[in-house]
Design a protein around this nucleic acid. Structure first.
Lengths: 257, 257
DNA sequence: CTAGATTTGTTCGTATGTATC
DNA sequence: TGATACATACGAACAAATCTA
């Protein structure tokens, strides 16, 4: 017999969605942790009194939401896993897909949050992270000298992605990564002149070099000041681009046809 | 014949996931807008050369991600819809479900972002929104006088939710709403003494009254100053709670057994 | 390395419910 | 009211992956 009431109040809801909601409650109530398993498909079919396809739709939903990972074979089935950062970032991208985003929108948050990020990671970067920051700067330098400014724009944002790895505040991490992703999408639409591109690229390389030096030394105050200055300069440059793109929607152009 | 290559590179991926990825590309490439329709199940079955169940799993995934809405009947099928704010917030909640969150984590962002929010909505609130802010304060006042401080904590956060409705920056909106949701989850775990609860509630009511008055008048500078002061006070109160909860995980307690 | 057991992944056929005309 | 078109759901079967003996 089904645990889920098929009576009036939910009669219009799809059965798989009712099961999904019930599984959500189950996970929360039992406080399931990564590594725990859900019952297998056969047991769930019996428990909810429905067909395999229906159960699979509910499990598929949980899988898409990132709560579980499916495995075949003996001892397979649905295993609880933590919702990954990447999955959340994908969902956030999907959200802004239908929004109009400008550099101004991004920097209303980014200007201050990157400073909070610098404050958070100051003195806590691992040797590996510092080495990758160094490598990132060198790659930007190569791209700068080869004249591939467009790719330079995208790679230099990874500098800030690396910083988020050392952040111990999950909320700050996901927000900064989100803003970086938005920035990457938006800079790819820019139509700057070569000269402006080159100046900006060199400026960023210099700023990142200073930041890395200070991050190695670990002086919190100097790090904050440097990041603040970096953000101010970058913001000013970016906002000039909003005028270029003005009239055209932000992240995705809605060109008819 | 299937459009999707079943050869080596993707051979290990589930068929329904390949179709999901292909539909994602389709939506992005054709730049589909809300109201546009995807082909019906039969056409998709023919196009991808697979069975109903597989198509349904892929469509279910798109539905969960919020890209489409399914409809029965003639002219039914999958219709594109914008990814809703609520769905993104749900996904963000799912993410932090497996993270340890403290008030300190939240206020590293909230202290500044709520000020940006106030800056954004200053002078742009509708009469309806102002009326609901007023009603919210009055409800908090009732709860305060009746001694239901726990519920007062939750309702007073809605004051800030209403502010986000007037925000024209989608990124700021989703971030502030996210922080408000986290706050609601976290304050429900507090174990304050009655006296402290009462003082804090009265303080918030007073602050919100001042904010509403200034929002009605529309003086940007005064609004910013008032919100800044409000956030400082609230943060100081909230951080005291981190010590109470210290040792215990943040959003969800991981009590063994 | 092979063989069998276990569990998910996929298919087909059919029936039912629901919205539109 | 009935006919049509579509999603929703069921059930049985087979295919593929993975673990264990």
């Amino acid at each position: 017999m089904s645990v889920i009431s098929r009576r009036k109040p939910f009669q219009k809801m799809k059965l798989s969605d009712q099961i999904l909601a019930d599984l959500h409650q189950w996970i929360a109530r039992e406080n399931l942790q990564p590594g725990d398993r859900l019952p297998n498909e056969k047991q769930l079919m019996q428990h909810y009194g429905c067909a395999k396809g229906t159960i699979r739709e509910a499990l598929k939903a949980l899988e898409i939401q990132g709560f579980i990972k499916m495995q075949t074979g003996p001892n397979g089935g649905a295993e609880i896993q933590p919702v990954s950062l990447d999955r959340v970032l994908e969902q956030l991208r999907a959200f802004v897909h239908f929004q109009t985003i400008t550099f101004q929108h991004i920097y209303a948050l980014r200007g201050t949050l990157e400073i909070r990020l610098a404050e958070n990671v100051a003195g806590r970067l691992t040797d590996d992270q510092l080495a990758r920051l160094q490598a990132n700067i060198e790659e930007c330098d190569r791209l700068q000298k080869s004249g591939d400014y467009a790719k330079g724009r995208r790679v230099e944002i990874e500098f800030h992605d690396i910083l988020t790895e050392a952040c111990d505040n999950p909320i700050l991490t996901v927000t900064c990564r989100f803003l970086n992703d938005l920035l990457r999408d938006l800079v790819s639409m820019r139509t700057d002149h070569y000269g402006e591109h080159r100046n900006f690229g060199q400026h960023n390389i210099d700023s990142h070099r200073i930041l890395l030096k200070l991050l190695r030394e670990g002086d919190r105050q100097k790090i904050l000041a440097a990041m603040q200055e970096h953000m101010c300069e970058v913001e000013a440059y970016m906002l000039r681009a909003d005028h270029q793109l003005m009239g055209k929607p932000g992240i995705r152009r809605a060109e008819a046809g």
